[in-house]
Design a protein around this nucleic acid. Sequence first.
DNA 1: GATGAATGAGCGTTCATTCAT
DNA 2: AATGAATGAACGCTCATTCAT
Lengths: 211, 211, 211, 211
Amino acid sequence: MPKSTFYNLPEKKKQRVIDAAIDEFATYNYYKANVTRIVDRANIAKGSFYQYFDDKKDLFKYIIELMSQEKLEYLGDVLKNKDNFSFFQLLEKLYISGINFARENPRLQAIGGKLYNNIDSPIFTEIIGTQKTKSNEFFQMLLKKGIEQREVDENINIKLVAHMLTTINISLGEFIYEDNQIDMDDMQIIREMLYVIENGIAKRRKEYVTT
Amino acid sequence: MPKSTFYNLPEKKKQRVIDAAIDEFATYNYYKANVTRIVDRANIAKGSFYQYFDDKKDLFKYIIELMSQEKLEYLGDVLKNKDNFSFFQLLEKLYISGINFARENPRLQAIGGKLYNNIDSPIFTEIIGTQKTKSNEFFQMLLKKGIEQREVDENINIKLVAHMLTTINISLGEFIYEDNQIDMDDMQIIREMLYVIENGIAKRRKEYVTT
Amino acid sequence: MPKSTFYNLPEKKKQRVIDAAIDEFATYNYYKANVTRIVDRANIAKGSFYQYFDDKKDLFKYIIELMSQEKLEYLGDVLKNKDNFSFFQLLEKLYISGINFARENPRLQAIGGKLYNNIDSPIFTEIIGTQKTKSNEFFQMLLKKGIEQREVDENINIKLVAHMLTTINISLGEFIYEDNQIDMDDMQIIREMLYVIENGIAKRRKEYVTT
Amino acid sequence: MPKSTFYNLPEKKKQRVIDAAIDEFATYNYYKANVTRIVDRANIAKGSFYQYFDDKKDLFKYIIELMSQEKLEYLGDVLKNKDNFSFFQLLEKLYISGINFARENPRLQAIGGKLYNNIDSPIFTEIIGTQKTKSNEFFQMLLKKGIEQREVDENINIKLVAHMLTTINISLGEFIYEDNQIDMDDMQIIREMLYVIENGIAKRRKEYVTT
DNA sequence: GATGAATGAGCGTTCATTCAT
DNA sequence: AATGAATGAACGCTCATTCAT
């Protein structure tokens, strides 16, 4: 985590550093990201960088953390009122928030995209592991509640489905912003995705579909 | 793609190069992978490397291509007889084959894992794009047939579901080999995953479940 | 030498700086010694450091000076009463004091050890030169008196022997504290060393040894 | 130790590198010595350096080794015929050779001088430890033989005296080349030093001095 | 075609010193 | 006088690629 020298910086300068870092990590992955370019863009001295952060990795972890906090704040309302909604309503809201976040913070979305990769190298297992685990645990909790409330099929494997939901959630941004294969609006995509999650893709026999 | 000099190489030497490259890319990601280590392990001269390949990227693309061919061959039987099976049977077989492939070719699985990341950098959009598109197109084709055969719900968004199936397929190996959160055998996981894909996770009302 | 700002400092703070510096120079040699670490340990501002001292070298010279004064004070009694003892008694007392000093001030001894090295770089010739010269001159004076008092062989080369005694004196601490090759107590070592200095190592013929 | 790439180099180039390194280490101590300056002076590429040596330390150790071999070769004749001379003759020859070596190889002498310092930092304990131990062991062996041959006083502490002789030997070059306090020729210095080593500095009583 | 040495731009990092307040 | 952030030259080292034989 950044040193106190960084936190003591005037807000404007601090933001310049953060912006430069986000730009860099949104453009290049961790290995290609370049401290010199960051300090140049932030207009600070090379030495200052190392007075703010331990090293490149330190900055990176900080940016990820920031991103993750920002996203959580974004999902804040949804999470706070989670008891007021049914499971599938909640899921919908989560996905919608996720997409809106990505739409409004394309640079952060770009970093996130690059992050959920590089599962190799110890650096990342550390960071991503945490994030993914959090997501998995959150979905597991939600699923359990959904089953209790008799909204969710009790025959499913909770851990497995939590993993599937996490994966789908992650790939959602990617799907919408990178594969421009689909020419419909995002809300429509989410609704259709939820339909599949709820009902699966097997054809319902007539008598089932009615009712 | 490799130069003709590479293809003209005695089979044994060619294989040494391929093996060394697979080892390297299975251990390190593209950026960390090191040409020197590859030529050392392959026991060829540094200069020779550049007489076989344009550059590191060229080799990487070649290895990915190879991997993907090998996987296709592995899925060969399933694909050839795809008309003899129902949609969900086919899906099951595909997933099973995928897992078996990963189990029998852990190094290739490792490369694949590292690959479906790094969506950044032009290098990868190029490579992965191709692969993913292929996978998407394949699933779209399958889904269409499934709908025609009245096995698959005609209300789904084909492109979207193809994307979901691709994503799930990719994350499957990862799920089984890296998250050891689940203590059941692979086939059980696949069956449960298919159950969810088929039926979704919404609780069925009594009358639906019977019949 | 330190600036007046340093001397005007409250005793406690001044001592903190000195302690921190001694710790640093006892642990690292001049080149590896680190100003940041010193100011951190002394709990003063980086800028203050340069208001007290010209630069790192300035501090170093000051510490050496201090050390040397402290050692002189330690030897004080011996030196004051130097007319009351014979040459070899004096030598013995000097060596004993030297060892006791090293034993009681291991950090200073460590600095001294590191110092009588690095004979390179102008910085040191300057500092060590002074110290060594002092030591040499002192031994020369002692030797002259020893000869006058008919205790010391008048055939020796005074300058050379002064140099040898200085060298031996310096290496004594090192010998006792770093080479633990000898398993006897320090006083024994000194006695044996003096025996050699007095008598040399050539075998005495029988008739000489008697008497 | 250097890699094979270095040993395979044309003699001339190899020598250029060695010369540049010796120059550098004779001028600056290990910490101040600078790889860039070395490669510039040797007129090789920065990258080449690291194809010849693991790192700066590797080169340094190599140069020390070289120096030490060269000195040994220089002392070769003396050492080979060590049984033909009495102990003190041998000692004299060793000191003379040592001085001649220093005189003919001032750069190597300079490195040696810098080396027998820096007793701190693990790097050096490793290198110097070896050298000093060798010297100590050699002198111990010589002393034992001297005692057997009834040339050396059997009352001395062998380990201690070996240490003294090593110290004196090391400081000899330093004494002659850096302290120009003495205005006599080197051989004279050696003779006088040996006199002291043999006879000590205590005044002989009349009856002893005769005979 | 094979070899392996040569290349050099580039990287992350350090740290004594200066500067602005 | 005190502070602590700012500075930037310099360092050791890496590695994909080129070159000469």
